[in-house]
């Protein structure tokens, strides 16, 4: 059980990068970008093929990040220059990427188990540390390497995003999602900003895909299916549990959301009658619940507030009568 939770935190941290990408498109740019299902695999494909080809896994992962950036820019181009609506631009890009990913991998599945990956390298580097820890916590799993690396990486990416969104370009990017007409009247090139934003978003998604493929030991053409919903689930769960008052708070919430999501799925799969194939259904349910419950809670609070007001009004008129 602890081992299972431990690995869901590991995976959660790596998926958090993807969720941060989704946060940038959905929340910052207000652009529902479905490219994610494709660009996640693009990242995995690029990294795996390069690693198999003998490239340093760190460089391969950065290459994946670059590939994701281009994929995102392409979606942005479809929307801004091609005047195609956001959802359709993303879907078109997602479909196109399916074929492109297959071309990159040359087959539906690239195994990485025999390869040196980012994960094997850091695990090796951590060996001493792990041995020391094993004497203190004998019950925990084989390595702390991935969790420590994941935390470090996610923290760095989070801080970079937080800082970037406070720069002049970052402020303009946020304004595109908030009020396009306004930013255009202050010399902001909304087309270019949209492309940059989607590029950054998908760069993170592809980077996450690259790391996940190295973590799980393969890339697969189908590994991106439903990824956008997982990303959304992380964003929504995070915001619901931890709030999103400021950018710094929101990005932190998204990271925790991604981890909580993994834990929930892990726990759900322990339930007897649920099978691995049910994961997507569970994910959809989580998103639906996370979207609907806050509305119901708010509606209920409103109703109670009104009822209380009415009660108070009745009471005060009664008081008036009594005083007469």
């Amino acid at each position: 059980m602890i081992t299972a939770l431990f690995s869901s935190v590991e995976a959660g941290l790596l998926y958090a990068l993807m969720a941060l990408g989704v946060y940038i498109s959905f929340r910052v740019l207000d652009f529902p970008d479905l490219t994610v299902d494709g660009s996640f695999v693009t990242g995995a494909a690029v990294a795996s093929v390069l690693i198999v080809g003998g490239v340093n896994p760190f460089i391969a992962s950065l290459a994946a990040l670059g590939a994701g950036f281009f994929a995102g820019c392409a979606t942005g181009l479809l929307h801004t220059k091609g005047k195609i609506n956001p959802l359709l631009s993303g879907i078109l890009m997602m479909i196109a990427l399916y074929s492109i990913n297959l071309r990159i991998m040359d087959k539906p599945n690239v195994p990485l188990l025999q390869q040196e990956t980012v994960m094997t390298i850091i695990t090796k580097a951590f060996q001493r540390f792990d041995q020391a820890l094993a004497t203190i916590f004998p019950f925990v799993p084989k390595t702390w390497a991935i969790i420590v690396f994941g935390m470090f990486l996610v923290a760095v990416v989070k801080v970079i995003i937080d800082l970037f969104l406070k720069t002049e370009v970052g402020l303009a990017l946020r304004a595109v999602g908030d009020n396009k007409k306004m930013i255009a009247s202050f010399s902001g090139n909304t087309d270019r900003l949209t492309m940059i934003g989607l590029g950054l978003s998908n760069a993170l998604v592809a980077f996450s895909g690259a790391l996940i493929s190295q973590y799980s030991g393969f890339s697969d053409i189908g590994m991106g299916i439903g990824m956008i919903v997982i990303g959304l689930a992380s964003v929504i769960i995070g915001e619901a549990l931890f709030g999103a008052k400021t950018i710094m708070r929101a990005t932190l919430a998204v990271i925790f959301g991604a981890i909580v999501y993994r834990i929930v799925i892990t726990l759900a799969l322990r339930v007897q009658f649920l099978e691995t194939g049910d994961v997507k259904l569970i994910t959809a349910m989580i998103v639906i619940l996370a979207l609907v419950v806050p509305q119901m809670v708010a509606a209920r609070a409103e109703k109670q507030r009104k009822a209380r007001k009415r009660g108070a009004a009745v009471a005060s008129t009664q008081a008036d009568y009594e005083s007469v």
């Binding site: 002049e168 370009v169 202050f186 010399s187 902001g188």
Partner: peptide, 13 residues
């Protein structure tokens, strides 16, 4: 944002 109407946007705060 308004300040940058006349000055090119950079990666400074």
């Amino acid at each position: 944002i308004a300040y940058n109407r006349t000055v090119k946007r950079t990666l400074r705060f």
